[in-house]
Design a protein around this nucleic acid. Structure first.
Length: 270
DNA sequence: CTATTAGCCTGCCAGC
DNA sequence: TGCTGGCAGGCTAATA
């Protein structure tokens, strides 16, 4: 579930809690596939003694720039999170200077840590981050016009725009009143603009509310202090199948688009 | 270029 | 209550 707003929330909370500027004293890897192709011993050797200079985010990637010149890039995938207190499912434990410990928690073990000399090796495969100026209306229109796929699949394609996942894609389409299965190249000028604005708006709202948690389970998104995100009450489409549309009162419907569960309003999303 | 499937893992939930 | 199958927010690789 961590999409752009959740990753942004976690990154900014780690900054607020003073992770930047600390020295890495130890690295304990409890689930080795997370750091492939390195072994836990190699990985600790490369990180130990490095200062964490800066924590940033691009799309759904978190970037820790290190004093060694390398960058630690973390993708939380389905269930990854960070905490500053020990818990269950801690796959990597990073001991920092001045007594702080960073816990990487990931029930489903899908998350991945990449240690790279140049972040561009990974970032050049991505389209512009959805909340930057590089993701402009002109760019988005151009991308939509040349793709025949379902518009929802285009929103989820990280090489087109980086940061949207299943929740915020459904939300943006609901706000723009566009049916998720519409061919991207069939949208009108007005629809493209409405969708563009909706994408930016739902992501900003997600950040303001510190992310969306859909349940209380162990695989659910959590802020750094363990709290749920507060955006759930704002959700209009995702996970509301069978419930009334908050705009027209029709019953929301769930279908599959590009192998992904998709909830929308058959009445007002056309 | 687009679509489809399988795989990676574990927890959760509905249904029986 | 207890078990089971199917499903889940992401992404990649392989195949058609």
């Amino acid at each position: 579930m961590p999409e752009l707003p959740e990753v942004e929330t976690i990154a900014s909370q780690l900054r607020e809690r003073g992770v930047e500027g600390r020295i890495i004293r130890s690295v304990q890897v409890n689930w080795a596939p997370t750091i492939e192709p390195f072994t836990p011993a190699e990985f600790e050797c490369l990180l130990k003694g490095c200062r964490i200079e800066q924590i940033s985010r691009v799309g759904k990637w978190m970037l820790f720039s290190l004093s060694s010149g390398q960058t630690l890039m973390v993708h939380l995938r389905m269930a990854g999170s960070f905490a500053l207190e020990q818990g269950s499912y801690d796959r990597i434990v990073v001991g920092l200077s001045d007594g702080l410990t960073l816990y990487y928690r990931d029930t489903r073990k899908f998350g991945r840590w990449k240690l790279v000399d140049d972040p561009q090796v990974i970032l050049r495969e991505l389209g512009p981050d959805a909340l930057t100026r590089r993701f402009s209306l002109a760019y988005f229109e151009d991308q939509l016009r040349k793709r025949a796929r379902a518009v929802k699949s285009v929103l989820l394609d990280q090489s087109v725009v980086a940061g949207l996942g299943n929740i915020y894609a459904d939300e943006a389409l609901w706000y723009a009143r566009i049916h998720p299965e519409r061919r991207a190249d069939s949208l009108s000028d007005l629809e493209r603009e409405k969708l563009f604005k909706a994408v930016k708006a739902v992501l900003r709202q997600g950040i303001r509310n510190r992310g969306t948690s859909l349940g209380a389970g162990k695989t659910n998104y959590r802020q750094v202090d363990g709290d749920s995100g507060e955006n759930r009450g704002e959700v209009r489409a995702y996970g509301r199948s069978g419930k009334p549309c908050r705009r027209c009162k029709n019953t929301l419907k769930k279908i599959v688009v590009g192998q992904r569960g998709t909830t929308f309003c058959p009445n007002c999303q056309v």
